[in-house]
Design a protein around this nucleic acid. Sequence first.
DNA 1: TATGAATGAGTCTTCATTCAT
DNA 2: TATGAATGAAGACTCATTCAT
Lengths: 206, 206, 206, 206
Amino acid sequence: MAQEKNSNNEQLILETAERLFLEKGFAMTSTTQIAKEVGCNQAMVHYYFRTKEKLFQSIFEKKIKNFLSPFLQDFDSNIPFEKRIEQLIEAHFNFLKENPKIPFLFFNELLTNPARVDALKSSLTELPQSVFLKFRNDLQVEIDKGNIRPINIINLLISIMALNVAGFLIKPIIQNVGNISESDYDKIIENRKKENVLTILKSLKP
Amino acid sequence: MAQEKNSNNEQLILETAERLFLEKGFAMTSTTQIAKEVGCNQAMVHYYFRTKEKLFQSIFEKKIKNFLSPFLQDFDSNIPFEKRIEQLIEAHFNFLKENPKIPFLFFNELLTNPARVDALKSSLTELPQSVFLKFRNDLQVEIDKGNIRPINIINLLISIMALNVAGFLIKPIIQNVGNISESDYDKIIENRKKENVLTILKSLKP
Amino acid sequence: MAQEKNSNNEQLILETAERLFLEKGFAMTSTTQIAKEVGCNQAMVHYYFRTKEKLFQSIFEKKIKNFLSPFLQDFDSNIPFEKRIEQLIEAHFNFLKENPKIPFLFFNELLTNPARVDALKSSLTELPQSVFLKFRNDLQVEIDKGNIRPINIINLLISIMALNVAGFLIKPIIQNVGNISESDYDKIIENRKKENVLTILKSLKP
Amino acid sequence: MAQEKNSNNEQLILETAERLFLEKGFAMTSTTQIAKEVGCNQAMVHYYFRTKEKLFQSIFEKKIKNFLSPFLQDFDSNIPFEKRIEQLIEAHFNFLKENPKIPFLFFNELLTNPARVDALKSSLTELPQSVFLKFRNDLQVEIDKGNIRPINIINLLISIMALNVAGFLIKPIIQNVGNISESDYDKIIENRKKENVLTILKSLKP
DNA sequence: TATGAATGAGTCTTCATTCAT
DNA sequence: TATGAATGAAGACTCATTCAT
């Protein structure tokens, strides 16, 4: 009724769509529903974004960039390498804590629409390489010094992501099966963060 | 017209559905398409399984059981604990190599239909506890002996799953971005298996 | 399971179909459901009756004959005419008490499939005319004697049927709206029978 | 192609649906057919009314109200009671003449979907009670004065409805069996109206 | 006599999209 | 900028019926 003749419908649609896509994925979210929750006409959604696909893409790409951002923060070179690894793991973990649904969305979309990988690819290739190269170089130095066992940097990054993401992906299962409250799960998650740091650091020992 | 001698349409539907559900998920697979690929009438699918949901469930539950089976194999008690961990990781990894889409399906369905967690829960609670309890006990013995650092068994199992699953979940990305051939990725995967064993074993050191 | 290898499936199908048709009408009753309630294969229903339509017809025609039977009983000529009217009304009413759903079925089918009237017509024309003619004759005699006001026999018969049927047709409404128990409605119905006799007899007075 | 200028599709759908539901009942009318007769897309029907059920309900409830309206007209208190009964019967009868299919629809739906009674109930309870109470009171006065035999008002109303409705319910049978033309049946119907007035008035005599 | 398998036609419903206004 | 109306395509599902065995 009292329809906020709001200044910015486009933004509202974007936010609502983002929320719904994260909640239920692309296929299970209808433009009808987006419109209903926004409180606008169904045609409005298409007016701003032409197609559902385009709407999704704009959100998806933003989310990819978000997800990758923790890996792009340059570190103070004075900090010991181990400490930097720790900071990296924690930054990534903290991001996931704020955006726990993102990994779901990624894997969901990668399964249902393989073409989505292209979006990911272009995001990756657009990244500034410098940080990555520097990190790779610093890692190699540590390996050469014998402080860290020989390890492929990609494998390392994947392992970090995997260990971090797991705690959030598995949340609905653990929570339901173990009948665990939200606040209790928060503690489990915090513990898991430390555990992941420990696991990675130990695994890097020569 | 050219009425394919049936032999076993039910089985054929089940297999085709399994393949399609794994390829594209529940929502993106239509009974029409299942029927088309089987080469039968769409009504046939409903004849055997009543609803798409029931058809999916029967497949989903089987897949859950498959996925959990590597964790249920009892080990020879004479084998050193570290070796047993190694065998566990490898068994799980090998299973994933044969069924690389399963993790996708799980996370996909967990996102789009939270009620699926119930299926998982009931599968989990139906499991024989003995193997798990024995494993937990043996782990505790090792910790007490000081051979292994204190670690929560659930955290350990999640980490194993996470590291193993990651290599397969991330495959489409790596392969596409790095423009890597199937056989080259096989090598990467094999290497990753060793890497995961190493990572876990090192991380358990006191 | 312990499927009564019963001697007479045909009869069982017929009875089940009759019950279901009376409960829910032709369109709302599926052969699938009939088969399920009988406990036999769906094809069985068609084996005996070829089509759902034929199955229904055989039941429908029987029901028409049942419904008309109270009007075909010859009366002792010594009984005073008024008493005979009373007996007729009561016989018809008692039949309805045993078969309260029949009027529903008739009107239902007459609406949804006008071709059904043909079945009714053939049933009517097959009736022995003698009883009807005798009754009409006796009525005329009474009119001529001045005992009864001039009235068309068809109109009279329709009125009798209408008043009798009404109590049963309206049952679900009255019962629901007035929140009346089954046994209380029985009393209402019994009272209505007397009321109908009274109404008709009074209405015939010159 | 030849896109009929819409003007008012919603209204057209409503009218067409009303006609078809009255002709063939709920179950036998498909939204496809409604659309076809309207000359619009099938989705259009759902656009305005969401579901077939909702479309039907809106029509059904209107029809119930129509059907009850003759009983809600207040009468001039100066008119003798007998005359008022006569007017009531005739008003009801005339309504049925304009809407002869309505009773069919009611009994059809009451049979095939018992939940419909609820719609009726709510319509009945929403009625203004004053007219009914006044009528009941006036009836009692006449009974007390000895002008009318003791009779339950509900029974009286049911009898009026029954006698009136009967002429229309039985029309297809009489017309077909007796091979009677439309105009001839009109005469029969007119005669029946008088007959019903006579029947009721006589039956009320003390 | 009995039935499992099979199917074409049809059901209601939802959806993304377009277009005139 | 905004929207009500319209639609083609597709969705899951049900049903009466047939046929080989």
